[in-house]
Amino acid sequence: MANRLPTGITVLDRRLGGGIPPGSIVLLEAPPASQSELFLYEFTATRGTLYMTTVRSQAAVSDAFDRANTRVGSPTIRDIGSDAPLDHANRLVGALPDSANLIVDVADVLERSEPARYRSFLNELQTQMVNTGGLAVLHAMKGHHPPENRDVTRHMADVVFDLQTDIQGQEIINRLAVPKFRGGAAMDETIKLKLGEQVTVDTSRDIA
């Protein structure tokens, strides 16, 4: 489909009609103990990327890219997780070039900001992504106590990727749902994925 930006993940691009509309904000929700970072790494291989880390240090993220066995790009990495992370994020978002990716890993730190300030950040982010024709990916952890602003993130996001990871006996089952897709059709079923060296379709049959 015309006017789509590929994610770099073949199975997703095929299911999503070629990718995601430019200017979109994507929310990737995933369990902390999952291989969800593979999605982020593969995103960086598609175009220039600003990678904002809020928990891991800049050096730790850089080392992870060096060790990655999947296709990755050469993102600009910035640690914004110290004092005033939302202010740091705002300054960097305002300087994004055209057609770039922005990755926030993880968004939880920003979601703990005062609600009005966080809402303002998301609106500014959306305006900037539309103006530059890029993609923003907010990586958020699923847990027992999500940040107060998580529902605001879900509402503002144009696309929601919901990764579910379950352990069944000796098998780890990863399923991806895309329940929300502005500018396209949301998927009506989950995709069973294999998260190894890269994101691929898991063709094994489920055990009843």
Rank of each mutant, 00 (worst) to 15 (best):
V152D: 02
M129W: 03
P115Q: 01
D98G: 07
A157N: 06
D108S: 08
M156K: 04
H155S: 12
A100S: 10
Q126V: 12
Q126G: 13
G94L: 04
S99G: 03
P147D: 02
D158M: 09
R117C: 00
E111N: 00
L138A: 12
V160E: 03
V104F: 06
M141H: 13
R154E: 10
D151F: 13
V152P: 00
H155L: 12
A100K: 02
H139E: 07
A116K: 10
K142C: 04
G134M: 10
P147T: 01
D151P: 06
D162R: 15
E148Y: 15
N123E: 07
A100H: 14
D105N: 07
P97K: 02
S99Q: 15
H144A: 15
V106R: 02
G94A: 10
D158Q: 06
M129I: 10
F121H: 05
N149L: 05
F161Y: 08
L138M: 15
A140F: 07
L110P: 11
A107S: 15
R112D: 11
A95Q: 09
Q126S: 12
M156R: 15
Q128H: 07
N149W: 10
R150A: 13
L135H: 10
E114K: 09
L96G: 03
M141E: 10
S113D: 07
V137I: 15
S120H: 09
K142Q: 13
F121E: 05
K142I: 10
L125A: 03
G94H: 07
T165E: 10
L96C: 02
G143M: 02
F161S: 05
D151Q: 15
T165H: 03
E148V: 03
E111T: 06
A100Y: 12
N149M: 07
A136M: 05
R112Y: 15
S99I: 09
G94T: 11
D98K: 15
V109G: 09
F161A: 11
L163E: 03
A136K: 00
H144F: 06
A95E: 08
R154G: 09
M141S: 09
D162T: 01
V93P: 04
T132N: 14
V93D: 00
E124G: 14
A136Y: 08
N123L: 14
Y118S: 01
L122N: 06
E111Q: 11
T165P: 05
H155D: 08
G133Q: 11
L138I: 11
R117V: 07
L135C: 01
H144K: 13
V137N: 00
F121M: 01
T153R: 01
